[in-house]
Design a protein around this nucleic acid. Structure first.
Length: 240
DNA sequence: ACGCTAAATCCGACCTTAGG
DNA sequence: CCTAAGGTCGGATTTAGCGT
């Protein structure tokens, strides 16, 4: 996905690629939101904690680890409101010390790595101040005029997409669980049938069936894919 | 005007640990 | 045993604030 600008002339990985891509994405999504607004069907702002839950469920899609999500949670906690409205910049400006506090004492270097991961995944945008510090400039009446820190707008503007992935992830989890329970039921019932067949002395090739069952009754891997599970499921149904 | 220090950040090199 | 992720440390940059 990031081949085009994957490396810089300086040899390192390019942070700016994710930055530019995120900014384009934000501009594009904002245009669509405003268009919808002017057509009279405005999109509601996203509930930030609900959105975070959904992102947690869909985190595999985005390659985000649990701790990266925890850092995002800390960032969200610095936003005053419960909703994220992508129509405006959503800038939070906590120091690393404060972020560390809200991530239960995460080490600074680790914190930075996870922040970089969030930027990379285009969930947030860096709004750097001239000196790299994060702060807000306020006018005399205390209103924030400009702020330097992290912009949460990309996350807000991807709410629908994230919800979609979360729904899919939930469906997949249910499907996997269903397959697993059916597999165990099949295994148990087939074993019972064979056992009964042998002990009651019924005619049948019980030995052969027993061997086939052994081949299918190994432990199902904890991280088996849906394909693997449904294949096993099909074979068991046939045997039965 | 100048220089020093503090704060905040990024980066790279290196070590440690958990899990497959 | 190897790998990936996390953690530590030191070097670097930038600006604000302060004293001379």
């Amino acid at each position: 996905m990031t081949e085009r600008f994957a490396t810089t002339p300086f040899g390192g990985r390019s942070l700016s690629h994710a930055m530019f891509a995120a900014q384009e994405r934000v501009a594009d999504a904002r245009r669509k939101l405003l268009a919808a607004d002017s057509e009279g069907n405005p999109t509601p702002a996203a509930d930030k904690w609900r959105l975070l839950r959904s992102l947690t469920e869909a985190r595999a899609v985005y390659g985000l680890s649990d701790r990266t999500i925890a850092v995002l949670e800390a960032l969200l906690s610095f936003h005053q409101r419960a909703e994220l409205d992508g129509r405006e910049p959503l800038i939070v400006f906590p120091s690393n010390a404060e972020l560390s506090m809200r991530t239960r004492g995460m080490a600074p270097a680790t914190l930075r790595r996870h922040l970089a991961a969030l930027v990379d995944a285009q969930m947030i945008i860096r709004r750097d101040s001239p000196n790299g510090k994060r702060y807000a400039r306020r006018s005399c009446d205390g209103e924030i005029k400009s702020a330097f820190g992290f912009d949460l707008a990309p996350l807000a503007l991807r709410a629908d997409e994230i919800e979609g992935h979360a729904t899919a992830a939930r469906a997949l989890a249910r499907a996997l669980q269903g397959l697993r329970t059916e597999i165990t039921i099949h295994l148990r019932d087939i074993a019972k049938t064979i056992g009964a067949g042998i002990s009651e002395g019924r005619a049948g090739r019980w030995e052969e069936l027993s061997v086939r069952l052994d081949g299918l009754s190994g432990r199902v891997a904890r991280n088996a894919t849906k394909d693997e599970l449904s294949k096993r499921h099909q074979e068991l149904s046939r045997l039965r």
